[in-house]
Design a binder for these strands. Structure first.
Lengths: 125, 125
DNA sequence: GTACTATTGGCAATCATATGTCATTAGCAG
DNA sequence: CTGCTAATGACATATGATTGCCAATAGTAC
């Protein structure tokens, strides 16, 4: 079961790496199909799952939306996300207000937090 | 087309009002069926949609989860949500770190924001 | 170049959520 | 109490995301 280095896998990996923002499965497909004509959604799902298992990418959950995916190394730096209400794209934003612990009720244990900013991106504003 | 005051509608409304936290459709059903045996999911969906149209309740979107619903009046006060990673329930938390505008990239326009705290509730901690 | 088999991609199938259908039930006005 | 019909609930169907299947394709080791 030796791994093989296919053009599809390279294209999908490149697309996620180059995006600089979390991509949905359809977005990955649309971008990668430019590189590899005939690329199918089925393959995108498979390669994305493999990258997830490898820990190369991480899922980004957005309220009311299917998961997006971004490079694990990009996710190492604490950051949050901006969701454009018009084009539906998700962007990384840096910084964090902090002080989440103040909001936690007594007896509750905080593990992590997610902030989603909603609005319009520079292209849609 | 005169509205009728049915036991099902009363039970569903009461359950959402009494919960003090956002409830999912299955949660509403499980709680309201105690009041009205035989209550069906189909009816919960219908009544919830009607309450949404009336503006009596509002949807609460949690990353990677189906919508929850809470009283509109409860949502008037700015607040956020705590999602228990064990029991999967969602709770309201008060307060807000503020300063979201600092995170918005140039050219982007901020409309709203959502914060989801993840961790363990007092019963699961 | 050959052989072996991991990988691909089209299609069907699955899974969870949500809605349409319609005969039956039960508010409400009189 | 009676009649009208809004509302209910079991069932079938729709919808969207994801996976199973399998014959065809294409990396790789030799």
């Amino acid at each position: 079961m030796t791994r093989r280095n296919t053009s599809q896998q390279r294209a999908i990996g490149d697309v996620i790496k180059a995006a600089g923002r979390p991509l949905s499965i359809p977005e990955i497909n649309e971008l990668a199909v430019e590189e590899v004509p005939g690329l199918g959604l089925r393959t995108v799902y498979r390669v994305v799952n493999r990258l997830l298992e490898d820990g190369a990418i991480v899922p980004v959950a957005v309220p009311g939306q299917p998961d997006r995916y971004e490079m694990a190394e990009a996710a190492e730096r604490h950051h949050h996300h901006f969701h454009c209400l018009n084009c539906d794209r998700v962007f990384d934003v840096h910084g964090c207000p902090g002080r989440m612990d103040r909001m936690v009720p007594d007896g509750f244990v905080l593990d992590s937090h997610e902030i989603t900013l909603n609005g319009w991106c520079d292209q849609c504003a």
